[in-house]
Nucleic acid binder design. Structure first.
Lengths: 227, 227
DNA sequence: TCAAAAGTGTTAAGTTTACACCCATGA
DNA sequence: TCATGGGTGTAAACTTAACACTTTTGA
């Protein structure tokens, strides 16, 4: 279809992308943040970002930006929303769309991350962030918490095989509160799609802990999730 | 701060605004839709829309667009999200930010609405909408339902004084399911910020029904809401 | 042999659901 | 006087929360 300039009286804007990248490591929820080595605000901490290009949707731009940093494809991502304050970026007007991503922390391109000057930071001990990035993080964290309570998205933060203690520690980090071990395991036991395997993890204890796996096929058919 | 064109290698886009406007009337949840009398897609049904301008934030643009149609200010609005598919508007590339609004259906500028060729449509009997507007409506409806279950935003759809039957009918329309009258009233009774008044509404029945009011001050102090 | 994490059931409290009849009034 | 919507309580089912000890094994 030929372009007809229906809207030519209206202004155009840069459309940015910002990624809140969640990881889970040593029992703690972390974000992958970068120390900017370019202007504006060079030297400060920020989310990984980029700009929407002509040949890609906003969602695709977010996937690309995440891939540029981590080398990962096929990552669980959700849009957080558009951030459109006039002065949110003091350099130029940019309307930014934020996304959050859940990645398995064993499983990304460490060299790429290093070359971007990016580091994992405990979500409860974040440095000061540029622009409105803290606001994006807060909104993303709330959305993620809400979604994770009712959809099994948390498994994206774990290795394929995990112990129940790891799963519980993850949910404790997401909710920011501790849970009762027996009640937690009782709930897990009702969910058929959290299957046990014959493998034992010996790294976390002398006795060893049974490894479990999330079975998405069973979830799709029968799944009610609530943790 | 002087503009320095840090980002000049990146493309710019029109940024649209689309409003999902909820109203409640005769026991039914409705949307205010317009029949487009301009290109593209002239003659089809769409959401009320507009474009972000240079001197306004996205949120302010949404308020303006809503005001242009309804004459209303200070309306409860929430962002639904950014819609950024390349071909979502077949005329030109537009990245659109959708918002939903909850308005009291007695309380808007009918003349303005008529002049925009806009009409209330039962949310369960929507006509075919242009572009990705149905997707926006679906997402807005889910977000609104979720939010309304846990925050007293529904009162924005009612007159200041309302009967418990009106309140229940509203929530039944939001959830798309009927509720038990006694259980509903029991729950309302636990919420101190839903206060009864000395007024009686005689329009809905011969006997008359007590009118209630939402007290936001009490809600802010003590409020737990769940319907 | 002991420290450290894994694993395992029961009971009480609280919440949710189901359910049916009388009341007040205007037409 | 009767049709219409307004208003009211109780008991059973279910869900959630609290709680402590035994097992295994490597160091």
């Amino acid at each position: 279809m030929p372009k007809r300039n229906f809207y030519r009286e209206h202004p155009k804007f840069y459309v940015g992308i910002d990624c809140i990248i969640f990881g889970f490591q040593k029992g703690r929820l972390s974000l992958l943040l970068l120390k900017r080595n370019f202007e504006p605000s060079k030297g400060m901490w920020s989310l990984m970002g980029g700009f929407v290009q002509k040949d890609e949707s906003a969602d695709d731009a977010a996937k690309r930006v995440l891939r540029e940093l981590t080398g990962l494809d096929n990552v669980y991502m959700e849009q957080v929303g558009a951030f459109g304050e006039i002065e949110r970026d003091p350099g130029e007007r940019v309307i930014s769309v934020a996304y959050y991503a859940l990645i398995n922390i064993d499983d990304y391109d460490k060299e790429l991350v290093r070359s971007h000057n990016a580091f994992w930071t405990d979500i409860n001990e974040l440095p000061e962030l540029i622009f409105d990035h803290q606001e994006m993080v807060d909104k993303a964290r709330n959305m993620m918490k809400q979604k994770a309570s009712v959809n099994p998205i948390g498994f994206n933060l774990l290795p394929e095989l995990f112990t129940l203690t790891q799963l519980q520690t993850l949910y404790e980090a997401i909710y920011g509160e501790t849970m009762d071990k027996r009640n937690f395991r009782k709930r897990v036991a009702t969910m058929e799609f959290i299957e046990n395997t014959d493998f034992i993890d010996k790294t976390g204890s002398k006795r060893g802990a049974r490894l479990y796996r999330m079975n998405s096929d069973i979830y799709r058919k029968t799944g009610k999730f609530k943790l």
